[in-house]
Design a protein around this nucleic acid. Sequence first.
DNA 1: CACTTGACCTGTCCGC
DNA 2: TGCGGACAGGTCAAGT
Length: 293
Amino acid sequence: MPELPEVETVRRGLERLVVGRRIERCRVLTAKSFSPGDGAVVEGAVVTGARRRAKLLALDLDNGLVLLVHLKMTGQLVVRGRESWGAGHPSDSLVDALPDRSTRVIFDLDDGSRLFFNDQRKFGWMRCLPAADAAELEFVKRLGPEPLDANPWPEFRRRARRHERAVVKAVILDQSVVAGIGNIYADEALWAARVHPSSRVADLSDRKLRAILDAARAVMEESIELGGSTDRNYVDAEGKRGAYLDFAKVFRREGQACPRCGGAIVKTRVAGRGTHLCPRCQRLRRASGPGSA
DNA sequence: CACTTGACCTGTCCGC
DNA sequence: TGCGGACAGGTCAAGT
């Protein structure tokens, strides 16, 4: 669901629709979705920037605070203009009238629009804290390199090589190894690099590791151009779905033909996650012991 | 310490 | 039709 391309798409929408706006009112409907418990800390503040690090969004405020947002699995940030919250929602929006039963926080902005934080499963969170403290959060400090930055390879290699015995899919999903990859793009990148998700890092050459990183960059760049992936819940800041899954090669395509070799795509379980691959072009090779299918 | 599994939640889908 | 259970996936906590 929201992985790097989806979060980046939301960020761009917020930059356009929310940056420059003053927050007049902030209502917290679900206490665990927002800390501190009272939305008053952001009232009166102007949003000065919308940034992203990994899957984490940051809205900079002019009162010295920053509002961090993690959408986790089902979080949405949707902006509605004065004319379209309530019943008359835009026809191209996947989201009906707001607020709805999964709305957790509502921000009233000074142009009459509203920003809704929706989150069906309540895994996501908003956290308001001094800007200087945000960079010191343990989760933030441990994050690996941004895959779309200029040269993430040396740092990615160094960090991935700390986990020689782990399966490669678990390693590229580890945000402290490389930031922003989730289940969809992990499967797509491993397919593009022709690497079996259950391969041990120790059995992969640097060349293969680099192919995985390059593939992850390529699929995520393509996805951003298409507005991200919508499986069920993800929408951008205007409530619209993303088109990337229409172009995905393996994700949610079990039983279909591999576009590269024609073999059947299978769904299995790797590192505790649903995993899609083509067993014919992503063969599992072990440096020691007999190979197996 | 490296690595894997379970918990957090809610809605949906599948089989009986 | 109703109901139990598996499943979805990001991250942290607890387990091996």
